[in-house]
Amino acid sequence: MEKCEPKDCLRSLRCVSSGGEALSINNVLDFAQFAHDKCQFYNWYGPAECTEAASKYLISGNESKQGHLPIGRPIPNVYIYILDDYLQHVIPDIQIGDIVIGGSGVFAGYTDELLTHQVLIDVDGKLCYRTGDLGRLNIESGQIEFKGRRDYQVKLRGQRIELTEIESTILEATDWVQNCVVVIQIDEESLSSLVAHVMVKTEDDRLNETVVDYCRQHLPFYMVPSMWSFVDHLPINDNGKIDRKRLPRVSHNRHQDEVITPRTELEEQLQLIFAQAFHMPLDGIDVTLSFELLGGTSLGIIHALSMIRSQIYEGVDVNLLLTYSSIRRLAVKLESLRLCENASNRPAEDSKITLSYPKPCLAIETAGIFVLGVIGSSIAKPLDK
C-alpha cells in the first residue's frame, strides 16, 4: 500500500476490524489514510476460550494520546467483570483488576483438568473465564480499558512494575513510534535491567532522546528503561503477536555507532565515574547521551552521586543528576557551580570568615528517591494492589 496514492487505495473499504493484539491509535491513523473517509475501524477483544470475541470498540480518531485503545463494551450475550484477587468487583476508574468473561461463548475447558479449574470460575452463578488480562472501567465513557497482562507485572529492585504501563507511555511520546515492547533483561553479572524495544518509522537520534525524555517526565525514575533499542520492525510469531522470546539482547549504546568523547578535563572525570558506577567500559560512555540511554539505574545514579561528591563537588544533589542527565550537560552545570562558589568564597577569605554549608545526606536522598517513587506510583494507581 505504501506504493499507492493514499486516495486511490482501498476506496471501497467500509469497515476494518482488528483483534488479537493491543491496538494503538497510531496504527489506525497510518492505515486510515488509504481507506474511504467513511470507513469504520473497530478494536475487538476476546480470547479463543470465549469464542474469539467478547467486546468491541468503535474508534473515533480522537484518541490521539491514549496509548492502547479501549476494548469497548461487551457484545450481546457476553458479560465482562473486572475483579480483584478475591473475586470482588473493583472500584471503577480507580482500581485495576482481572478481566473475567462470562456468557454463551465460554468454552467447556482444557484437556488438562487442573488448568481448567484454575481459569474457569463461578461469578454470580455464571460460569466465567479468567483471562489473565488486566483492565479498568472508565465511568465517563463506559468503556473498558485494557491494562496489560498479569504475566507482565514484574518486580525490579523491590519495586512492582507494570510493563504495559511503560509501553503505553512510550506510545504516547510521539507519532513517530509505531509499536514497542518492554522486557526484563539479565546480564552476565545477574543484574536485571528494563529494556525497551521500540519500533519506529525512521531512525533519528534526536527523536530517540524525545522518547526517553517523555518517559522521564511521565514515569517514576525506577520505571524508565535503562537500555533502548530503536528498530524498524519487531519479531512476530505465527499468531501475529510480538514474539518476546525472539527479541535480541540489547547492549549499551546499541543504537549509536559513534561514541562522543570528552572535550574537557571535567568531562573525562565524569566519564570515568559513570563508567565505574554503571559497570561499563570507559570507551563505551558517550558524554552526550542521557544516563538512561547509557544504561543507568537508580542504584548506579546513587553510586555516581557519591563519587562526584567525594572527587569533584561536595554540594551536588541527586536532582542535579536527574535534571542535567548527560555527562556534557552535567559538566557545564558543575563548572558554573564551582565558579560561583569560588566567587562567593573570596570575600569570606579576605575577612577571615569561614562559611559552612550543610552537606547533603546520601542516605536521606536515597530514601527520598524511594519514597517519591512509591508516591508517584500510588498517585498513578491509588488502589492498585
Rank of each mutant, 00 (worst) to 15 (best):
246 R>Q: 10
114 L>F: 12
227 M>H: 09
242 I>N: 04
170 I>C: 00
368 G>N: 09
72 G>A: 10
294 L>D: 05
67 G>H: 09
200 V>F: 02
347 P>C: 07
50 C>K: 00
42 Y>P: 10
97 G>T: 00
187 D>W: 02
308 I>Y: 10
83 L>N: 01
59 I>L: 03
295 G>F: 02
19 G>Y: 13
7 K>L: 14
366 T>K: 13
113 E>F: 09
241 K>M: 00
373 G>M: 05
102 G>M: 10
224 V>F: 01
45 Y>K: 00
55 S>R: 04
330 L>Q: 10
325 S>F: 07
225 P>G: 00
62 N>P: 03
58 L>N: 04
116 T>M: 11
205 D>V: 15
225 P>D: 05
246 R>M: 14
269 Q>R: 01
54 A>K: 03
140 E>S: 11
28 V>H: 06
88 Q>S: 04
112 D>P: 05
206 R>G: 04
124 D>P: 12
151 D>R: 13
311 Q>C: 12
184 I>H: 09
74 P>F: 05
267 E>V: 01
176 W>R: 03
245 K>E: 13
375 I>P: 01
318 V>L: 14
204 D>N: 13
129 Y>F: 11
198 V>E: 02
253 N>I: 00
215 C>I: 06
362 L>F: 01
316 V>D: 05
238 D>Y: 12
209 E>R: 10
347 P>D: 06
66 Q>S: 15
291 F>W: 09
12 S>W: 09
220 P>Y: 01
125 G>E: 05
231 V>F: 10
151 D>I: 11
120 L>S: 00
368 G>S: 14
299 L>A: 09
164 T>S: 10
101 I>W: 07
308 I>K: 13
127 L>C: 09
54 A>D: 07
38 K>D: 12
226 S>W: 01
75 I>N: 02
166 I>E: 08
44 W>S: 10
266 L>R: 10
331 A>W: 03
23 L>F: 04
100 V>E: 07
218 H>M: 05
127 L>H: 14
29 L>C: 03
282 L>G: 03
33 Q>P: 08
257 D>P: 00
132 G>L: 02
353 I>G: 06
267 E>I: 08
350 D>E: 14
102 G>Y: 05
26 N>I: 06
362 L>A: 07
69 L>R: 08
203 E>F: 14
135 G>N: 10
297 T>M: 00
165 E>P: 03
190 S>M: 15
248 P>C: 06
110 Y>W: 05
331 A>D: 01
27 N>K: 11
240 G>L: 02
45 Y>M: 03
284 G>S: 14
16 V>K: 07
8 D>V: 04
54 A>Q: 01
109 G>F: 06
14 R>Q: 05
263 R>W: 04
245 K>C: 13
180 C>S: 04
287 V>M: 10
171 L>D: 13
374 V>D: 12
25 I>R: 13
137 L>P: 05
120 L>V: 06
3 K>G: 14
108 A>D: 09
190 S>C: 04
285 I>N: 11
136 R>W: 06
110 Y>H: 03
279 H>S: 14
356 S>P: 01
237 N>T: 04
95 Q>D: 06
115 L>D: 07
126 K>H: 15
32 A>F: 03
202 T>Q: 12
378 S>Q: 10
125 G>C: 12
270 L>H: 04
89 H>E: 12
291 F>S: 02
287 V>L: 02
208 N>K: 09
126 K>E: 13
27 N>T: 15
268 E>N: 12
385 K>T: 15
341 E>I: 14
98 D>R: 15
226 S>D: 03
172 E>Y: 01
145 E>I: 12
